[in-house]
């Protein structure tokens, strides 16, 4: 009989991660004790607005933070049990692109303008696997086919500016998938695209994730993207995860007032003709985080307990955790 802690380690396990940024005005806390785990073949959406720490989380996992000004002050990021924050630069490089890969928001600026796309994809095979130039090019064409870029063999020598926005994002995805990574992090992969193209790119990501049994972290501010793609979702606010659980369940019955507010601010058929409900106020200053719950100032349910102590993640339902003193109330009324 296997006890849970004897099972194979999770693909990714983030333990109490804290990241600070040194700014002119003082130290800003971008990530304030984040815990996450992701199993192989599962997908996790990280939902949050600008400044919630979702992109910083992604960059910390990839080792792409500029240090300084950023500094990881605490925590572990375990990939198959290996702490990415403790490995040396060489080991880090051998993992990046091969075991963990990333898809960026703006494909045009994520691609080098002076190199043909085939060379940028092929570079991964050359560097990580020692392929010859010709073999790397063949592999790049294969990848371009896989992400369904038409006439890949003809377009392999084209430059990024010669592709449309959607095709460019496919190239970035091809680059990320080239070495069959175990974990793919997509940071707002569709934000810069037209709505119709967005759907195609999400479809592609979803399909590649399940076909290759990959772990996927999808970072977005867009609830509908999370709903479309991911198995689980973690909602971030002011550097903390305030709610997490299975996507459909959590979005249908939020247990945190912030998530409830987000879900309510989506345009829908019932709200036609009415003004969309918005969450009043703005997120707290990361330089001066409040003593209690960081959402208390904007929360309709906040009382003294909320402004005095920070609520921690507590189970509220099966597989669901919420960091709110009022979660039961929210869950019942939502």
């Amino acid at each position: 009989m296997n006890k849970p802690h004897e099972a194979a380690p999770s693909l990714l396990e983030i333990k109490d991660l804290r990241v600070e940024f040194a700014t002119r005005q003082g130290v800003a806390t971008a990530i304030n004790g984040v815990n996450l785990s992701l199993q192989r073949g599962r997908s996790l959406g990280i939902l949050g607005e600008s400044g919630s720490g979702k992109s910083v989380t992604a960059r910390t996992i990839m080792g792409l933070l500029d240090t300084p000004p950023a500094r990881v002050t605490h925590g572990q990021i375990l990939l198959n049990g290996e702490d990415l924050l403790a490995v040396n630069a060489k080991r880090r490089r051998s993992l990046n692109g091969a075991s963990v890969a990333m898809v960026f928001q703006d494909a045009l600026s994520a691609l080098n303008p002076v190199h043909p796309v085939g060379r940028q994809i092929g570079e991964l095979y050359r560097v990580h696997r020692g392929y010859s130039r010709a073999a790397a090019k063949r592999a790049a064409i294969e990848m371009m086919d896989r992400v369904r870029i038409p006439a890949a063999a003809k377009r392999v020598n084209d430059y990024p500016h010669q592709f449309s926005g959607g095709m460019r994002q496919r190239i970035v995805i091809a680059m990320a998938l080239a070495l069959d990574p175990e974990l793919l992090i997509a940071d707002e992969p569709t934000t810069a695209l037209d709505v119709t193209v967005q759907a195609q790119i999400l479809e592609l990501l979803k399909e590649q994730q399940s076909e290759n049994n990959m772990g996927l972290i999808l970072i977005t501010h867009d609830i509908s993207v999370v709903r479309e793609v991911t198995d689980e979702v973690a909602v971030m606010y002011a550097g903390r995860i305030i709610e997490r659980g299975p996507t459909a369940e959590l979005l249908a019955h939020p247990a945190h007032p912030y998530t409830r507010g987000l879900a309510a601010s989506i345009a829908s058929e019932e709200l036609k003709g009415q003004q969309l409900p918005a969450i009043p106020g703005s997120p707290p200053d990361l330089l001066r985080l409040p003593q209690g719950c960081s959402f208390a100032a904007r929360c309709p349910l906040a009382d003294q307990a909320c402004t005095a102590t920070i609520p921690v993640l507590q189970p509220v339902a099966l597989q669901r955790d919420t960091a709110c003193f009022k979660s039961e109330e929210v869950l019942v009324h939502a």
């Binding site: 990839m62 490089r93 994520a110």
Partner: peptide, 13 residues
């Protein structure tokens, strides 16, 4: 530039 971040994400030296 962003594409240098990409290069780093690809594990280049």
């Amino acid at each position: 530039a962003e594409y240098l971040r990409t290069a780093k994400a690809k594990g280049l030296s």
